[in-house]
Design a binder for these strands. Structure first.
Lengths: 208, 208
DNA sequence: CCTTTTTTGTTCCTGAGCGCATAAAAATCT
DNA sequence: AGATTTTTATGCGCTCAGGAACAAAAAAGG
């Protein structure tokens, strides 16, 4: 377990003027801006205002608008899968695990203070996907990983006797993914956290 | 059954210069443009090019960009629900009916020639929803109708003995909607028509 | 203490997007 | 045929968006 991501005190200071803003934080704030208004609906000035960095600094740090978005998108997938990994690895029954997964997802989908924004991918990247091969590739790759994660866990559950031996693992995995997708969409469409939690419970009860 | 939508030959001709383009067709072409590149990603010049109308004519016919989009969105919901109604009303087993629904949906999601664009709502309106109360309202209303349609049909199916008497109708309806949502998303993310059809079949087999 | 290096901050330029004002065209009515 | 009405077509002006150039600042190195 490397602890090197935090802050490396042994780093030798670079030569020029120090950065005024932490790149990690700045990218998070940029992502939050895209999350609200989408790729096309967000200007570099919006990101500049959100991060406190001016445009030349943004450009130097992350590249042009498209590069910033792609970095934010990739970062989101990593964050999402890390959150799912924790939920998968905490043990308990299959139903409990699935509800942990959905609760973790909902806590991301409702993480914005004033208004739910749903999933970054579903809410912003899907729109751009047809006209942007790179974004489409990253999105599709993430969905494959999502399906595979569910399927792998259902396989474990079946081995543990929590599912019937003839259960269609792929079918269950697709429904589990579909449930996550519908949560992502409905959150952005204005559904309440509570309603979506109940929706997830009903889905889990059918799947298990 | 009114046949008045086609063309009213008894119409008295209006007084000025006749319209060069059919409003119905123009709105369809405008919607197709939004469908490709989303609300923020589409300019009035794009719509002008797609319809052959120049901007002042567009404005006179449909209002500003936002109004055009809202009209296109409402029109899409009507079209979608009309397509679903036909699929619901064609009889057959529950499984067959559900597959007709999903096939009808996929034929819309893949209706674009060169590249699949998925669902207009999921692919374009969801992005705008948090920042646009009117769009959010139309989207949420459509989802409620979708859920209600499924639930009503499951109720009929249960009465007809196609479902167990203790089946949770709302849960099944939500899963049916979720399946449609995942189809919409995945189509725009680049999945093939065939793969999605197989996905739908697996979902139907679990639900029934 | 001056030079070098890297980042920040300001400014300009070009193009796109949208609304609007005005002219031209094509029809009906008298 | 001329007047009226409704639409199409062209062009102007304002604002915003994105890239790049240039000057100022803040650090380390010699």
């Amino acid at each position: 377990m490397r602890s090197g991501t935090k802050k490396d005190e042994t780093e030798k200071k670079p030569r020029g003027r120090p950065r005024a803003y932490d790149p990690e934080t700045a990218l998070r704030l940029a992502a939050a801006t895209f999350w609200k208004t989408g790729y096309s609906g967000t200007s570099l000035d919006d990101i500049s205002a959100a991060t406190g960095m001016n445009r030349p600094s943004l450009r130097a740090a992350f590249g042009d608008k498209h590069e910033i978005y792609v970095k934010a998108l990739s970062r989101y997938w990593e964050f999402k899968f890390e959150s799912m990994r924790k939920a998968f690895d905490s043990g308990g029954s299959l139903a409990a695990t699935l509800m942990r997964i959905y609760d973790a997802s909902l806590s991301i989908y409702f993480s914005n203070d004033d208004q739910a924004l749903g999933c970054f991918v579903v809410g912003t990247a899907i729109t751009e996907a047809p006209g942007d091969p790179e974004i489409q590739r990253i999105v599709a790759e993430g969905f494959r990983t999502l399906d595979a994660n569910f399927e792998a866990h259902f396989k474990l559950a079946r081995a543990a006797g929590e599912l019937k031996q003839d259960a269609d693992l792929k079918a269950l995995a697709l429904l589990a993914s579909a449930t996550m997708h519908t949560l992502a969409i409905r959150a952005r469409a204005g559904a309440s956290h509570n309603d979506l939690r109940k929706l997830a419970q009903k889905a889990v009860s059918v799947i298990c």
